[in-house]
Nucleic acid binder design. Structure first.
Lengths: 330, 330
DNA sequence: TTGAAAGCGGTACCAA
DNA sequence: TTGGTACCGCTTTCAA
């Protein structure tokens, strides 16, 4: 039933070593013999055994990716790009979407199942970092919360995103601008707020308000509702992410306030919702492709030992202007 | 650097066989020796090598799950439940979210990396089925499109969902009810429509309209916009999924039509949006937990050879009543 | 209850 | 360019 490299060797009249060479595209195989082997493989419907290869090589050629969710267009896109990039280098992605299990005993880490690990938007990365260093397992943090010394990471300049978004609202003539920031737990939330404040400061303005809430539609709704109840609205709102922005708009429209005519709203992340719900959302987009590209580059170098020091790549977000913002009417 | 089972054997003064037994919880190890081994493992920070175990056992203890997307609360939930259920049986989930690559050469299938495979909401499952049968690899289809003979699957009674949703609208007094169905490619779309039509027929009514569109907010928006432009609205709409429903509501509200006061809308799937965007959406929920439970049950039995014939499990959806529907005002 | 030895299916070093 | 052979780390007989 099972066909191994020995069967191929016998069938082709060559040795297992030669078959192995063909398998690994070694150049030192006479073309004629290569064909003989290839034919034998086809006839026998031979498929190499991953476990055996891993054991013999001491490498799995698998890179793990741990995320807490993929219910997020941004993370989903990053993940897909990473998958593609890795495959083009002969590696595979072992994806793990484990809820909150910030498990130091994650199965990908255990039992040497992967050659390296990517932590995508981790929450408590410090706990992992300790274990990974101890295990001597190469890893890269992507969109992480904390700066950890001598650890490679790929991040996006969130303060720039916050700054650009706010700057844009200012250019539209707004002066009563509010911000809804995400939880303090997230570096991104802190940095976006920082960018927001900086832009206002440069314009000599005070924020209309800075509220805080989880990254969710419900929270955005709640906060906008609060403003509505107080009968005290800004003319523009920079929301910490698209879900908050969506909740805000939902509450405003429900209350009969027109967006963007009466209030402009900017989100962050360019989730799929931003391009589907009306009014289409002005937002800040993170460069998923570039993130994936740099991440794979780093992890492979780390695995191959080509990279000595740790690297941190910072990428810039991009403002995407759609229909939820407009010039302030005098 | 690397510590193997031999090191543990030496350190504990016992043989590798005994260490292996401890590793596999074999009962035939004197408790005292078990402790000796356990201590040695701890002191050496020993971790068994997955590749070696797989090779020796001829099994990987890994089950693969192939999905085309997890950007869907329903699929996401199913995936998480499956992960948990498998782990409780000592198996791990290898997750692959590969876009459209309906790859018969999927890396999980190649090289005997998994003991079994779960295809979650596959589109062109037939192509996989052939290859998997040929490879003699156990697999289960979940929420699949096509009935394939002697193939195990877990599905939800979509016609019942469509029937229940429509029945509910009828009970609310509606008679001008429209349906927006998903693409013909999806069995779920066809079945939901069937349920819709059956309920109407029983009530002696004709559908107000049946439109078709992709499962997306934009399509729902487009179709509702069309009705608005024709100035011809139903009093109730059963949308093929929550995204379509969201698009419909978005268009109606934008046009100043109140939901549910003027038009009732029902969705399908109970996506996270259904519980966040106002009006909160009345929808039909699929039993993710049960799906996961049965799926894992089947795949494990298949792997263990306990299951002879193929099984098909059919589960029932549940109507969730929220704020987007209301009794027709006379 | 314990252990010696033979694989599991490949890769890699060294000779030829 | 080719092949013999010794592993890779663990499990599984089979005896003791």
């Amino acid at each position: 039933m099972k066909v191994s490299i020995f069967d191929v060797a016998r069938k082709s009249g060559l040795s297992v070593v030669t078959v192995s060479r063909v398998l690994n595209n070694s150049p030192s195989v006479r073309e004629k013999n290569r064909q003989r082997v290839l034919n034998a493989m086809k006839e026998l419907d031979y498929h190499p055994n991953a476990a055996a290869r891993s054991l013999a090589r001491g490498k799995t050629r698998i890179v793990g990716l741990i995320a807490t969710t993929l219910q997020d267009s941004f993370l989903d896109e990053v993940m897909r790009e990473i998958t593609t990039a890795l495959e083009s280098h002969g590696y595979f992605l072992a994806l793990s979407v484990s809820a909150d299990k910030q498990d130091k005993n994650h199965y990908l880490i255990q039992e040497e199942r992967v050659d390296g690990l990517i932590l995508l938007s981790p929450i408590h990365e410090a706990e992992y970092v300790y274990e990974l260093n101890k295990r001597n397992l190469p890893f890269v943090l992507v969109d992480n919360q904390t700066n950890i010394p001598s650890t490679s990471s790929v991040i996006v300049e969130n303060d720039k995103g916050g700054y650009d978004a706010t700057k844009y609202l200012l250019e539209l003539g707004h002066t009563k601008i509010a911000h809804i920031r995400g939880p303090h737990l997230f570096r991104s939330a802190n940095e976006r707020e920082k960018g927001f404040l900086r832009a206002l400061r440069e314009a000599g303005l005070e924020p209309f308000a800075v509220e805080q809430g989880e990254f969710s539609i419900n929270e955005g709704y709640r906060i906008a509702r609060k403003w509505l109840d107080e009968d005290r609205l800004p003319t523009a709102i920079f929301a910490g992410d698209d879900y908050l922005a969506t909740g805000v708009i939902n509450a405003l429209l429900e209350a009969g306030i027109r967006v963007p005519e009466q209030v402009s709203v900017i989100g962050y992340d360019d989730q799929f919702l931003a391009q589907e719900l009306r009014p289409l959302l002005t937002t800040v987009r993170q460069p998923a492709q570039q993130i994936a590209h740099h991440t794979v580059d780093i992890i492979l170098k780390l695995i191959q030992g080509t990279l000595q020091d740790s690297v941190t790549v910072k990428l810039r977000p991009e403002l995407i202007i759609r229909d939820s913002t407009q010039r302030l009417k005098p």
